[in-house]
Design a protein around this nucleic acid. Sequence first.
DNA 1: TTGATTACTGACCCGTGAGTCAGTATTGTA
DNA 2: TACAATACTGACTCACGGGTCAGTAATCAA
Lengths: 224, 224
Amino acid sequence: MIVILSNEYFIIVRQAKNKNTATTKTFCRRKEARPSEIMKAALEEFSLNGFAATKLNDVAKRAGICKGTIYLYFKSKEELFEEVIKDRLLPNLEKMEYIGELSRGSAKDILREQLSTIYVALLSTDARHIPKLIIGEGSRFPELTEFYYKEIISRLYNIINTVIKQGVEAGEFRQSALNWKTQVIMSPVLSAVIWKTVFDEYAPMDLDAYLETHIELLLHGLEK
Amino acid sequence: MIVILSNEYFIIVRQAKNKNTATTKTFCRRKEARPSEIMKAALEEFSLNGFAATKLNDVAKRAGICKGTIYLYFKSKEELFEEVIKDRLLPNLEKMEYIGELSRGSAKDILREQLSTIYVALLSTDARHIPKLIIGEGSRFPELTEFYYKEIISRLYNIINTVIKQGVEAGEFRQSALNWKTQVIMSPVLSAVIWKTVFDEYAPMDLDAYLETHIELLLHGLEK
DNA sequence: TTGATTACTGACCCGTGAGTCAGTATTGTA
DNA sequence: TACAATACTGACTCACGGGTCAGTAATCAA
């Protein structure tokens, strides 16, 4: 008995039927697994085409189901889009908040570790497409944009601000760093994500060198 | 005789006709002015809605004409989009390349002036919406993305690299700055543009403080 | 094995918007 | 004033895709 049926297997089964092979199922009931499979497929399609140009038919095909099934789990295309975005944000956020508590050592060391963890977390999963989607479709989903700002960006900034404050208090960093805009300090992260998802095939990014520059520039800039 | 007829005036004239006012024109022939008016209207609509969700009917209304007229000057919606983007890039590019030749003084001073000029040039015109459009629609317009990278980004990077090199040779900046990724150095610019066009209404940006942080962080980081 | 439940299908509806084109109004010319 | 040339209009077509729903097939309980 097959417990978890992968999309790939499912597609093969359905093709077999077309060839008049004996008793095969036209579909499986998998109520629990559908929503996450649909969201995964949807994120892939949205990443490729943006919101408006994505066809729910293509999302369905990618998820190994037919279009109608999507509407058993999501009210509309808009709702699916919002769910997809929000769903990918939470695990990443938790990962980031976790970082600050892990490290012991100088503010310099903590900051260094935090930055590299953020880069890896953000660039190595398919969550890297989300900033692009927020930027491109944000004006049509104002509520989502606000959510993204409040729940992700500002929390991330808080983490960084805390460490910088610690560094200043401990005499490691310059006093004036307290007035610096966290946006500026963190902007290379946004920039890297954009680069990876937009320009990377024309001008590939050397992530290690990039990260090294960011850390060196920031830490040297912070020094007393 | 009216030489240059503004869109607003034109709309008033057409409304007047509906009220059965005597001899008014239903339209004017303005072959020369149409393309740039259409592109202006199109950029506004594309900025608000993105490519796919923009209706050419709305673009036409905004330009004070009807939809068919757009097709007298542009082959398709795609072509209009590409023209709009490319058209806005050239004047800005020239402005940027001009900066390097203006300043005399230390590398530090030139860099400071270049950065603030770039910020103003990029944030104060409607060209600020273009990065958002490239990011959001880039995957559907690969040729345009490549154009943008080659003709704008890499040229801008060259300008900055040249100054940094000068600074290192003059002994103003650290040697290791030569290996730094220009992407990192310039990322606050991209970040600021994104912020202004996406998040500004939820968390307004203090441009002066932002610029100050960027300059201070960069220059202090570059110091020997 | 049968019947009830329901996850899923896929053909269909219908609003929408890109693109067309025959006709109309304007402008320049004689 | 009349004519020719053409910029412009606006009603039209048609493909496309979001959303629906009656019917079908899988699953489970008895």
